[in-house]
Write a protein that binds this DNA or RNA. Structure first.
Lengths: 149, 149
DNA sequence: GTAGGTGCAAACCTTTTGCAGCATG
DNA sequence: CATGCTGCAAAAGGTTTGCACCTAC
């Protein structure tokens, strides 16, 4: 799916849920869709301000909250009190491995992991809405550079 | 293992690593061990202050950091910028399901889940140090009470 | 016209830090 | 008695909120 198309999907879904489609929201959504790394709210604000310096921090946070509730964006805790976001359109579900040494984030998918979670939830009658699996450790490159030293 | 015994284990390990065993640390550790829910730093501070009102917030945070580094306590992000802790002595590894409606935390274990994570990590040469799996959804009780309404 | 959205700044909440004094090993 | 720990208060970092104004529908 092309970015312009993705943006239209977001617009229609938000309009459909009774939200207004403002210039700010369009800019924020466009910018978020164009950002393929995991970005912080502040990153997103910066990028938006390069286009229109008047965008307010509050609007970015409020829009991220709307997008997250609508399922277009996912937030994950960074462990230091902040969060990073990623957009989730045309982007299959995946989990994350975070390198403790270089802080890079690796994405991976494992179908069996997904299934087992459903099994575990069913056992206690829990209905899953979403989940977040973060594995912390050391990536291949960092293991290597440690050895070299 | 009994609480007094657990506390002695913590004491000896900290002393062994060159840390001092102060009255404050003893109180904080005793209180943390006695708390079987997932507690916030502020919860822990409150409980400690009931015993000795002079305990400082900074000391609680500093002690939690030491305990976490030593592996006696584990912190998990609550998603709203805060963290909850649990002590981890004589308490096997487990993952968490968090109810979005009543905020209760359910613990569960699934060996297959653990194994699959190792498999996925091996595929990309990642060495796991720890992981955190949090499933968000609605618990059995809350699904029921919604229907009743 | 009227919700709902925006911008600003201040408030908030949790956690960290600088520093002077204190207690432990 | 040296170093590590503590308490206090202030700072920091990320996020939310109150309010008056604005704008999409």
């Amino acid at each position: 799916m092309k970015p312009e198309q993705e943006q239209r999907v977001v617009e229609q879904r938000l309009r459909g849920s009774g939200f207004r489609w403002t210039t700010q929201r369009a800019l924020i959504v466009r910018t978020a869709l164009a950002t393929h790394e995991h970005f912080t709210a502040e990153d997103l604000l910066d990028r938006c301000r390069r286009v229109d310096p008047r965008v307010s921090r509050a609007t970015v946070y409020r829009t991220l909250a709307v997008l997250e509730a609508a399922g277009f964006v996912e937030g994950l805790d960074t462990g230091d009190g902040g969060r990073r976001f990623e957009h989730v359109i045309g982007h299959a579900h995946h989990d994350h491995m975070v390198c403790l040494s270089c802080a890079r984030i690796f994405e991976f998918v494992d179908e069996e992991l997904e299934r087992r979670q459903e099994v575990a939830a069913k056992r206690i009658g829990f209905r899953i809405e979403r989940h977040s699996l973060r594995i912390h450790g050391v990536c291949r490159d960092c293991q290597r550079s440690k050895k070299e030293r």
